[in-house]
C-alpha cells in the first residue's frame, strides 16, 4: 500500500473521470479526478502526483497551460495527454517535449491502462 502511485485525472467530460477512476484503482493506483481545471490547478500546488492524465481541449483553460504548470511544479511527473482523434497530430507536434504519451478519443480502457502501466514502470525504474 505504501508505494502506491498517485494519479490525477483532469477532463471536463465527467464520464471520462467517472470511468477512469475505478479502472485505475483496480490496477492499484490512488486516483483523484477533476472536471474543473481551476480545482486541479489548485490541487497540483498542494500535492505531488506521479502521473497526470489531462485532456487538451477544455472549456476554461487549455490543457497546455495546465501541463506546463504540472511540469513546473514537479518536473518528474509523467503526463499523459488525451486528445480528440482529429487533433492528434497537431498535439503530438506541439507537445512532444515532456509528454509521456498521447491517447486519442475515443479510447479503450485497456489502452489507457497499458499506457499508465508503462509510465509507472518508468517511474519505478527511475527510483530503483
Amino acid at each position: 500500500m505504501k508505494d502506491q502511485l498517485k494519479i490525477l485525472v483532469l477532463d471536463d467530460e465527467p464520464i471520462v473521470c467517472k470511468r477512469l477512476k475505478p479502472a485505475l484503482e483496480k490496477l492499484g493506483y490512488e486516483v483523484d479526478t477533476f472536471i474543473q481545471s481551476v480545482e486541479a490547478m489548485h490541487q497540483i500546488h498542494q500535492t505531488s502526483y506521479d502521473i497526470v492524465i489531462t485532456d487538451l481541449k477544455m472549456k476554461e483553460i487549455d490543457g497546455m497551460r495546465f501541463l506546463e504548470e504540472v511540469k513546473k511544479q514537479h518536473p518528474q511527473t509523467e503526463v499523459i495527454v488525451i486528445t480528440g482523434f482529429a487533433t492528434m497530430e497537431t498535439a503530438k507536434q506541439s507537445f512532444r517535449k515532456g509528454v509521456f504519451d498521447f491517447i486519442a478519443k475515443p479510447f479503450k480502457l485497456s489502452e489507457i491502462q497499458e499506457v499508465v502501466n508503462r509510465a509507472a514502470a518508468k517511474i519505478k525504474g527511475a527510483a530503483a
Binding site: V16, P106, L109, I112
Partner: peptide, 9 residues
C-alpha cells in the same frame, strides 16, 4: 463500455 467516448465522437 470498453471505450471512453464523448459527445463529439
Amino acid at each position: 463500455g470498453e471505450y471512453i467516448f464523448d459527445r463529439k465522437y
